[in-house]
Amino acid sequence: MAIDTPPPIRGVPTAESRMEQTTTADGVTVWTIRQGRPHRMSVVERNEPTAQDVARFQRLAEQWREETFLSSSITANLAHPAYLTVMAMGEKALPLILRELESRGGQWTTALRYIVNQDDYPDKPADIGKPRELKEAWLTWGRRNRLL
Protein backbone atom coordinates (compact mmCIF):
# COMPACT_ATOMS: atom_id res chain seq x y z
CA MET A 1 0.00 0.00 0.00
CA ALA A 2 1.47 3.35 -1.01
CA ILE A 3 1.80 6.03 1.58
CA ASP A 4 0.65 9.40 0.32
CA THR A 5 1.54 11.37 3.38
CA PRO A 6 5.07 11.21 4.77
CA PRO A 7 5.44 10.21 8.42
CA PRO A 8 6.65 12.81 10.93
CA ILE A 9 10.33 13.64 10.65
CA ARG A 10 12.32 12.30 13.57
CA GLY A 11 15.17 14.31 14.93
CA VAL A 12 15.55 18.05 14.72
CA PRO A 13 13.66 19.45 11.79
CA THR A 14 15.12 22.47 10.02
CA ALA A 15 13.69 24.90 7.56
CA GLU A 16 15.74 23.13 4.89
CA SER A 17 14.47 19.60 5.67
CA ARG A 18 12.40 17.84 3.09
CA MET A 19 11.12 14.36 2.41
CA GLU A 20 11.72 12.57 -0.84
CA GLN A 21 9.56 9.60 -1.84
CA THR A 22 10.89 6.80 -4.00
CA THR A 23 9.49 3.34 -4.79
CA THR A 24 11.65 0.25 -5.06
CA ALA A 25 11.30 -2.39 -7.77
CA ASP A 26 9.19 -4.61 -5.48
CA GLY A 27 6.76 -1.81 -4.68
CA VAL A 28 8.09 -0.69 -1.31
CA THR A 29 7.74 3.02 -0.64
CA VAL A 30 10.82 4.59 0.81
CA TRP A 31 10.90 8.02 2.44
CA THR A 32 14.25 9.74 2.61
CA ILE A 33 14.97 12.77 4.74
CA ARG A 34 17.12 15.39 3.00
CA GLN A 35 18.64 17.95 5.36
CA GLY A 36 19.63 21.29 3.86
CA ARG A 37 19.75 22.58 0.30
CA PRO A 38 22.25 21.07 -2.14
CA HIS A 39 25.45 23.17 -1.98
CA ARG A 40 27.26 23.83 -5.25
CA MET A 41 30.84 24.82 -4.66
CA SER A 42 31.85 28.03 -6.41
CA VAL A 43 34.90 28.28 -8.62
CA VAL A 44 36.60 30.08 -5.73
CA GLU A 45 35.87 27.33 -3.16
CA ARG A 46 36.75 24.55 -5.57
CA ASN A 47 40.07 26.12 -6.48
CA GLU A 48 41.29 27.67 -3.25
CA PRO A 49 45.07 27.20 -3.21
CA THR A 50 46.73 26.02 -0.04
CA ALA A 51 49.64 27.82 1.58
CA GLN A 52 51.86 25.17 0.03
CA ASP A 53 50.41 25.93 -3.42
CA VAL A 54 51.04 29.64 -2.93
CA ALA A 55 54.66 29.11 -1.91
CA ARG A 56 55.23 26.73 -4.78
CA PHE A 57 53.72 29.10 -7.31
CA GLN A 58 55.77 32.03 -6.04
CA ARG A 59 58.97 30.01 -6.39
CA LEU A 60 58.06 28.94 -9.91
CA ALA A 61 56.96 32.39 -11.02
CA GLU A 62 60.15 33.96 -9.72
CA GLN A 63 62.27 31.29 -11.39
CA TRP A 64 60.46 31.77 -14.68
CA ARG A 65 60.83 35.54 -14.58
CA GLU A 66 64.52 35.40 -13.69
CA GLU A 67 65.46 32.78 -16.24
CA THR A 68 63.53 34.33 -19.14
CA PHE A 69 64.12 38.01 -18.34
CA LEU A 70 66.33 38.65 -21.36
CA SER A 71 64.61 36.25 -23.73
CA SER A 72 62.48 37.46 -26.63
CA SER A 73 61.78 33.91 -27.71
CA ILE A 74 58.11 33.33 -26.95
CA THR A 75 58.65 29.68 -27.80
CA ALA A 76 61.39 29.26 -25.21
CA ASN A 77 59.56 31.32 -22.59
CA LEU A 78 56.34 29.32 -22.81
CA ALA A 79 58.22 26.01 -22.82
CA HIS A 80 60.23 26.85 -19.70
CA PRO A 81 59.91 24.06 -17.10
CA ALA A 82 58.73 26.45 -14.38
CA TYR A 83 55.98 27.81 -16.64
CA LEU A 84 54.86 24.32 -17.61
CA THR A 85 54.78 23.30 -13.97
CA VAL A 86 52.49 26.21 -13.17
CA MET A 87 50.19 25.14 -16.00
CA ALA A 88 50.14 21.63 -14.54
CA MET A 89 48.95 23.02 -11.19
CA GLY A 90 45.60 23.48 -12.89
CA GLU A 91 42.65 25.42 -11.50
CA LYS A 92 44.35 25.98 -8.14
CA ALA A 93 46.85 28.22 -9.89
CA LEU A 94 44.18 30.47 -11.40
CA PRO A 95 43.94 33.04 -8.57
CA LEU A 96 47.73 32.98 -8.17
CA ILE A 97 48.38 33.55 -11.86
CA LEU A 98 45.85 36.36 -11.97
CA ARG A 99 47.41 38.09 -8.96
CA GLU A 100 50.85 37.78 -10.53
CA LEU A 101 49.55 39.07 -13.86
CA GLU A 102 48.03 42.07 -12.12
CA SER A 103 51.06 42.93 -10.00
CA ARG A 104 54.07 42.04 -12.13
CA GLY A 105 52.70 41.23 -15.59
CA GLY A 106 54.18 38.60 -17.85
CA GLN A 107 52.80 36.38 -20.57
CA TRP A 108 50.50 34.40 -18.28
CA THR A 109 47.50 34.43 -20.59
CA THR A 110 48.76 31.31 -22.34
CA ALA A 111 48.72 29.43 -19.04
CA LEU A 112 45.25 30.77 -18.29
CA ARG A 113 43.94 29.57 -21.63
CA TYR A 114 45.46 26.16 -20.97
CA ILE A 115 43.67 25.80 -17.63
CA VAL A 116 40.34 27.45 -18.36
CA ASN A 117 37.65 25.86 -20.51
CA GLN A 118 37.75 27.28 -24.03
CA ASP A 119 34.10 28.29 -23.80
CA ASP A 120 35.01 30.66 -20.96
CA TYR A 121 37.85 32.53 -22.67
CA PRO A 122 37.29 36.25 -22.18
CA ASP A 123 39.63 37.48 -24.88
CA LYS A 124 38.29 38.45 -28.28
CA PRO A 125 39.94 37.37 -31.56
CA ALA A 126 41.07 40.97 -32.08
CA ASP A 127 43.00 40.79 -28.78
CA ILE A 128 45.18 37.92 -29.91
CA GLY A 129 48.83 38.92 -29.85
CA LYS A 130 48.09 42.12 -27.94
CA PRO A 131 49.57 41.69 -24.46
CA ARG A 132 47.82 44.67 -22.87
CA GLU A 133 44.36 43.81 -24.22
CA LEU A 134 44.74 40.15 -23.27
CA LYS A 135 45.85 41.08 -19.78
CA GLU A 136 42.88 43.40 -19.22
CA ALA A 137 40.41 40.83 -20.55
CA TRP A 138 41.67 38.15 -18.20
CA LEU A 139 41.90 40.42 -15.16
CA THR A 140 38.29 41.47 -15.74
CA TRP A 141 37.33 37.81 -16.06
CA GLY A 142 39.16 37.03 -12.84
CA ARG A 143 37.30 39.75 -10.92
CA ARG A 144 33.97 38.64 -12.37
CA ASN A 145 34.64 35.06 -11.23
CA ARG A 146 35.86 36.20 -7.81
CA LEU A 147 39.31 34.78 -8.42
CA LEU A 148 40.87 38.21 -8.02
Binding site: T68, F69, G105, G106
Partner: peptide, 9 residues
Protein backbone atom coordinates in the same frame (compact mmCIF):
# COMPACT_ATOMS: atom_id res chain seq x y z
CA UNK B 1 71.68 51.15 -31.61
CA UNK B 2 68.60 50.54 -29.51
CA UNK B 3 67.64 47.15 -28.03
CA UNK B 4 64.67 45.97 -25.99
CA UNK B 5 65.93 43.47 -23.43
CA UNK B 6 63.71 40.46 -23.93
CA UNK B 7 60.03 40.51 -23.02
CA UNK B 8 60.48 41.89 -19.49
CA UNK B 9 63.36 44.33 -19.65
Amino acid sequence: WVSKCGVWG
